[in-house]
Simulated assay, not measured.
Amino acid sequence: MDNKLPTVKEIARRLNVSVSTVSRALSDHPRIGLRTKTKVQELAKEMNYEPNAKAIFFKQRKSFIVGVILPYIREEFFSEAISGIEAAAMEHEYTILFGQSYDNPEREKQVVDTMKKQRVDGLIISLSKQTNKYEHLQALDKYDIPVVYFDRVPAIENVHKVYCDLYQGTTEMVNWLFNRGYRRVAFINGPEKLQASKERLKGYLEGVTRQKLKIDMQMVETTDLSKESTHQAMKKLLSLKNRPHAIVTFNDYVHMDAVQYAEQHNVQINKDIAFVSYANLPITSYTAFPPLASIEQYPYGQGKKAMELMIRILQEKSAGTTVPDTHHTEKVMPTLVMHHPVAR
């Protein structure tokens, strides 16, 4: 029994035509007559012929593969994002090649290098929390590999990026808290190198300023996103002479660690101190103390937009319509979601 995959040569032999005729018929070339084209395509279907991906790559200079690098797939935010990326990729008959940086810049560089060697058509990346130099990504330009950043984007303008407007969302959240009587609002921010942390801090300071209150930087702490670092931030906030009435946490994972520490130190959650957060991940609904409110960042939508932007860039490149030095920026507007909107 012949288990070999059918080839263009086999189709050509059975129809007594040239290999080039079969190749052109399969690619719907206009110079091939309808009768011949129909015969070739019907026989190819009958034989379960599948195009050779490598051959298509060498002919079209395309792999139809887009690389995707995320910090951690285990985080629900990024697993939702990659689902959006994959959905858009499949709609356009692209495959994704996935890698994790584990929030390590050196690991990120290694994965980028692997993607380059695999000759991906483009790269979508959410930066590691410590990445503040981008030479390893900018170097892909000479290989004609476009890069689209999403969520964790660099603080530079001349790149393609998709991200959530966290400045606006944070300002709205602080305003929401003040309107409900929480006058001392503290903030546990993320790693300082992240542009997302800078946007959050900017929004927090703007929100407090709009209340015509003096900024108290004792109310601002940072975490490297580890449980130990978040607990240390909480220790400092709870040791203040005037404890905060509410705490804004960097994301839902930081929220859960912060709440854990507070509960261990006899704080009545969302009574003595209210907690609000970012991301609005479904996992928080299974915890004893979900945030009073969350900023929905739409990870699935961000991922889908990032891939759709990549497809547009690749299509413009293939059509030769790319405008030099033109870069696309797309903002996803957040939504403040109230879970237990209590009044004080």
Rank of each mutant, 00 (worst) to 15 (best):
I273L: 05
H339W: 13
Q118P: 02
L213G: 08
P146I: 02
K116F: 06
L70V: 15
H160F: 06
S239R: 13
P334C: 04
M90C: 08
I85E: 02
I273E: 00
A233T: 07
A12Y: 05
E172N: 06
V185Q: 01
E80G: 02
T326S: 14
P299A: 07
H29I: 09
G320Q: 10
Q211L: 13
Y163T: 07
N158M: 10
L309A: 12
K212D: 13
E75R: 10
V120T: 04
I295T: 13
T38Y: 13
A89G: 05
P334R: 00
L240A: 12
V276A: 03
G181F: 12
K241T: 14
N242L: 14
R24C: 11
Q264V: 08
H265K: 15
N175V: 04
E228C: 08
Q268R: 15
P154R: 00
P290D: 06
T7K: 11
D224G: 09
E46H: 13
V153Q: 01
V254N: 00
D224H: 09
L194S: 04
T170H: 01
Y298A: 11
Y182L: 15
G207Y: 01
R312D: 14
N48P: 02
T114F: 06
P6H: 06
K109L: 04
T326E: 14
E263P: 04
H160C: 03
Y163M: 10
K271Y: 10
Y94M: 05
R152G: 01
E50W: 06
Q100H: 05
E75L: 12
P191Q: 08
A139N: 12
V120D: 01
V332L: 15
A139T: 08
L309M: 15
